[in-house]
Amino acid sequence: MGLVHREDTAVFDAVVTLLDQFKREEAIITRETDISEDLRLDSLAVMDLMMELEDKFDVSIPLNLVAEIRTVGDLAEAVRRH
C-alpha cells in the first residue's frame, strides 16, 4: 500500500504540474477538480495532456479511456494503472 501510495502521489503531482497552466485564478487543483468544467479543457487538450503524461511516465494509455476521465483524480489513476 505504501508503494502504491507513493507512486500515486508522484503521478498526481506530475498531473497537477502539467495542469497548472490551465488553472483559472488561484484555485487549487484537487483530485476532484473537473477537467472540462473547472479547467475548461476541451477534448483535444485532454488528449494532448494524456500524451504528455504517456511520455513522462513511459506508459501507453488507450484513447478509449478518455470518455471515462472526468476529474484530475481519474486522469492520475489512468496513468498509474497503465
Binding site: 488528449m47 494524456m50 500524451m51 501507453s60 488507450p62 484513447l63 478509449n64
Partner: peptide, 13 residues
Amino acid sequence: ACKLGSATVVRFR
C-alpha cells in the same frame, strides 16, 4: 470511427 469500432486506440504525435 474509433469510437464506433472496438479496437484499442493509440494516438501518435
